[in-house]
Design a protein around this nucleic acid. Structure first.
Lengths: 121, 121
DNA sequence: CAGGAGATACGATGATCGTCGTACAAAGTT
DNA sequence: AACTTTGTACGACGATCATCGTATCTCCTG
């Protein structure tokens, strides 16, 4: 299962219909809303665990596939994650650089808060 | 169930009747949700401006009094603000200490993000 | 006491949300 | 080709939300 990645500048592919907001267009309210759901918070925490890309399947959340897709859409449209197609899978990655540039420290602080005692649910 | 109340005014609700969650009970998701509304974000930013207490009236938000009350309830129940009765007015204050203790840096970071360029709306 | 000011309570309404099931599409695998 | 895997699309549902208008309450002041 080797994914062939081009060595050239891949150009932030729109990937045929997967729309992502530009860095300058990230809205704080949207980001906070995206992170205000326990399921999504868990997803983001998992993504932040190792900065790699995760398939949708690799998340341990108590919802169905449909709901997962829905949550990923919210996260993507808020600019929290980036989605990239790779075969039958869709790889999800945290847009950490963009978020840090736009809202310095926000992501880190929220993830810390999320892993605080009594909040590990 | 029809209750005829207040005909002979008894035991009105003192300031103690306003319920606030304890520090240990603050939930991240609730806080993030409370702050994910532009109007509430503005209110909190105003409260953070000078750490004093603000009456409900003193906020410049484009909603009616009813809606204001609603937003304050959300903020209070999430533990973001503290409300205290003072005469006919209700004084609102940011629960900065509790928030900082529970979610270190969160409030500061969000407020910074809220006052970032392009987000000053 | 009567009136005004500050704020809540109580619907009501239209919008959005979180969840699901089913159906469908694309890319590997056998 | 047929099947499996991975994920989306489309409704649908109950729940919550943000907003408002109006009625009501409490306190202060004339």
């Amino acid at each position: 299962m080797i994914v062939v990645q081009s060595s050239s500048a891949v150009t932030p592919q729109p990937a045929e219909g997967i729309a992502h907001p530009a860095r300058a267009e990230l809205e704080l309210a949207a980001v906070l809303h995206a992170l205000s759901d326990p399921v999504r918070l868990r997803m983001v925490a998992a993504l932040a665990g190792d900065d790699g890309e995760h398939t949708c399947k690799s998340f341990d959340v108590p919802v169905t596939k449909s709901t997962c897709t829905h949550h990923f859409k919210i996260l993507r449209e808020a600019g929290v994650i980036h989605q990239r197609q790779a075969g039958t899978s869709r790889l999800n990655a945290l847009r950490r650089e963009d978020l840090d540039a736009r809202f310095p420290g926000l992501l880190t602080t929220i993830l810390q808060a999320a892993s605080a005692p009594h909040e590990t649910a």
